[in-house]
Amino acid sequence: MAESECSVFLFSSTSAAIRAEKLAMESDFKVKLIPVPRHLSSDCGVCLRCDSAEVDAIRSLLESSRVEWENVRRL
């Protein structure tokens, strides 16, 4: 996945980020927990990287599972 095609979901807690990762992987999205890139700011140190084309679908998944995130940013 090229950097320009990636986005990240930012969370306020690591627990929420890990829950999001598990839910996304169970739905076969290609995601990875990575350190928050230095040009972004977040309330916790990890964020969930995904394919930008899948942001909307992941957003719906997190909403339906009531996982809260702070922001979504394109890398």
Partner: peptide, 21 residues
């Protein structure tokens, strides 16, 4: 768990999360 962003910290976080679940 939940303190750093390296793989072992994330792995510890996943383990705590699995217990929560």
């Amino acid at each position: 768990p939940g303190r750093s962003a390296h793989r072992l910290s994330i792995e510890a976080g996943r383990m705590v999360y699995e217990t929560r679940e």
